[in-house]
């Protein structure tokens, strides 16, 4: 091969390699991107189907139930307006407790229960996941707006 052909071959290979690499990376990004969905959205049916997403909220007091001797645990999450039941089989993080803000990764099953494959609680007593804080604030604002809308009718 002449030097010019060699160079063309090298450039061609590099372009092909970059194209394949870009495709694989974008694919990986699409597959591993997870949306955070607010509990109110989930209860209205607005959530990505057939793929994992994240939910967050406060663990409802007294809602944590587990079968004696089994890893399976169920608990309710709330944004103080709506509720979502979460099932999980595994070890909960150290700072998981009732009343605490947590985030769960997983998907909704047919009976409307969120099946989590990961539950996260941050390692700081005072830390509230920002997504949870915002969704709580939104839910509270919605409630207030609803109450104000009712008032003129009274």
């Amino acid at each position: 091969m002449k030097p010019r052909q060699q160079r063309m071959l090298a450039v061609g290979l590099a372009v092909a390699g970059i194209a394949i690499a870009t495709m694989l990376t974008l694919q990986a990004f699409k597959e591993n991107m997870m949306f955070f969905v607010e509990i109110s959205e989930v209860s209205q049916g607005n959530y990505p189907e057939d793929r994992n997403f994240r939910v967050g909220g406060l663990v409802v007091e007294g809602s944590v139930k587990r079968q004696t001797g089994k890893l399976d645990v169920a608990f309710d999450l709330t944004d103080l307006n709506n509720k979502l039941t979460v099932n999980y089989a595994g070890i909960l993080p150290d700072l998981f407790r009732e009343g605490q803000g947590i985030i769960a990764h997983g998907r909704l099953n047919d009976s409307g229960v969120f099946v989590a494959d990961e539950v996260l609680a941050k390692h700081d007593e005072n830390y509230m996941p920002p997504e949870v804080a915002e969704s709580l604030a939104k839910a509270a604002a919605a409630q207030e707006a609803a109450m104000q809308a009712e008032q003129p009718a009274q």
Binding site: T25, F29, M34
Partner: peptide, 16 residues
């Protein structure tokens, strides 16, 4: 919208 990017993305993007 709020998203998070899972570790598998980084593993692939780094290995390539």
């Amino acid at each position: 919208s709020k998203i998070s990017v899972g570790p598998p993305y980084f593993e692939i993007a780094f290995a390539i």
